[in-house]
Amino acid sequence: MSASVDHGRVAVVLVEDDPGTRAWLESGINSAQELELVASFGALKPALAWFARHEADVLLTDLGLPDGHGLRLIKEVAGRSRPDGQPRTDVLVMSVFGDEETVLQCIEAGAVGYIHKDASPENIAKVILDVRRGASPISPMIARGLLARFRTRAASAASQAALARELQIDLTPAESDVLSMIARGHSYAEISRERGVSVNTVQSQIKVLYSKLAVHSRGEAVFAATRLGLIDPFDPGP
């Protein structure tokens, strides 16, 4: 059963435990014509229950919820895909400034964007719509974190060529370039000027990078499980 709205508006689900913040976010979502708030929760379990029976285009969730961590919900929802293979739901997380590490963990879990808690209502709607268009937000700090993660993965996988192929973890030169420029403080406009591509292209590269990181993270988990499975049969036993 889908909660998507038939007249082309983006169906948004909100999970936020603080009533004030939730009201403010709701007003931000409702301020945009293209967005429709289909459900709003103050806790993890009702949200999980809702997603067990429904689908949505966008999930905007806080992390520190009274009955559990938002990461559980992100993992649950971000794994779903449409018949064409594309992710069913874009997940965004509420972020406090200075907590890039948590945002990166959420991206690894499948989130494709984040909204700062001090963002303006127009900003909230804009970020959601941008993400729907395929453009994820990024900051120099997150770009730096991404680069570091890809580098360590590449380094640890370099010793296992098979794993590297399996996980397809290599960044394209263009992606790597974009990430380093953002990390050095360049704006999308400067990057597009310098590299001769549109700002939209630059922005969509970010979303691709986020999903790559998420895929790698899942891939690593699968690999670890496989490896455990491989070891057992060779155990000579008593």
């Binding site: 900051s139 120099p140 700090m141 730096r144 990390a183 050095r184 403080g185």
Partner: peptide, 10 residues
């Protein structure tokens, strides 16, 4: 210092 400048601009 690159990171510092980038964060400052951001």
């Amino acid at each position: 210092i690159n990171a510092l400048l980038a964060a400052l601009r951001y």
